[in-house]
């Protein structure tokens, strides 16, 4: 398997607060990775280190064997799509305008959209199933629909890797599930997916490998079956939960206790 992203002994700190402590990891091509862990464990920071939005203090990052420091931002953006936790829609762009922004890494200042660009945009709209919204202003959409727009914008970048920071938070059950289904579909089409997620059940159900982070270090890594168990969760989250197996797939699912034991 090709190495999509590799971190070698990476440390990162905001000012003096150390957030990532000496992490080394390898993400393989076409994996569906989930980064989980308690608040403040450094999940989002790790995600931003993976795509060069943040630069490591110490250590090296490689993207498809190429060192990230030797790549410029636009080059990275042609390989990695990033969906941030929050997007501001201060200006009321139309959906197609927003998805077109995904072509930015390919365009010069006054270059018009080429046939290739238009094709990529069209494909992204289809993949995210938002073609019927293309002329609507963004402010007329619900947050579930907006999340699809943001994912479509990242898809227009034609990325080999897609990073998403809590893509399902703030969404209702229906939209949570549809977003995760969309990601699974994209994964089967050959895109490496990395998500940061708080919902362990969703992560367990969809991801084929998990990284469990605690205080800036990788606590455990492996498939859901390997790392999601009562003992680990007690150690990382500090509460005792019940773990049962999913009736259809058998992956572990978590049930919270009715009362602290």
């Amino acid at each position: 398997m090709k190495r999509a992203i590799e971190l070698k002994k990476v440390c990162f700190a905001y000012d003096k607060k150390e957030v990532i402590k000496d992490i080394s990891l390898i993400l393989r091509d076409k994996e569906f990775i989930g980064i989980i862990g308690p608040n403040g464990a450094g999940k989002s920071t790790l995600l931003k280190l993976l795509c060069g939005i943040l630069k490591p203090r110490i250590g090296k990052v490689f993207i498809y064997e190429e060192e990230l420091q030797n790549m410029n931002q636009k080059e990275i953006a042609r390989t990695i799509g990033f969906v941030p936790q929050e997007t501001h829609f201060a200006l009321n762009f139309s959906i197609s305008d927003i998805v077109s922004m995904g072509r930015f890494p390919y365009l010069n200042p006054f270059q018009k959209l080429s046939a290739e660009d238009k094709e990529a945009i069209e494909k992204a709209l289809v993949q995210a199933s938002i073609t019927e919204y293309r002329n609507r202003p963004i402010n007329s959409l619900s947050s579930g629909e907006r999340q699809r727009v943001v994912i479509a914008r990242a898809l227009a970048q034609k990325p080999k890797i897609l990073l998403l920071d809590e893509p399902t938070s703030h969404l209702d059950l229906h939209h949570q599930y549809r977003i995760m289904e969309l990601l699974r579909k994209l994964n089967t089409e050959g895109i490496t997916i990395v998500i940061v997620n708080h919902d362990l059940n969703l992560a367990s159900l969809f991801c084929n490998r998990l990284f469990l982070l605690k205080t800036g270090k990788i606590w455990a890594t492996g498939t859901a079956r390997e790392i999601i168990n009562v003992k680990t969760l007690k150690a990382v989250y500090g509460i005792t939960v019940q773990v049962i197996n999913h009736p259809q797939t058998g992956v572990p699912q978590i049930i919270l206790p009715s009362k602290e034991q």
Binding site: K48, C51, I53, N72, Q73, K74, E75, I76, A77, R78, I80, G81, F82, V83, P84, Q85, E86, T87, H88, F89, A90, L91, F93, D97, I98, M101, G102, F104, P105, L107, P109, F110, V150, A154, Q157, L163, D165
Partner: peptide
């Protein structure tokens, strides 16, 4: 004026802009 696309993107947030390749 050359930066009109960057400005469009940056209005949607810093992380969005960084993710699309803007320093």
């Amino acid at each position: 004026y050359r930066f009109h696309r960057e400005l469009d993107i940056i209005s949607q947030g810093m992380e969005t802009a960084a993710g699309l390749g803007i320093d």
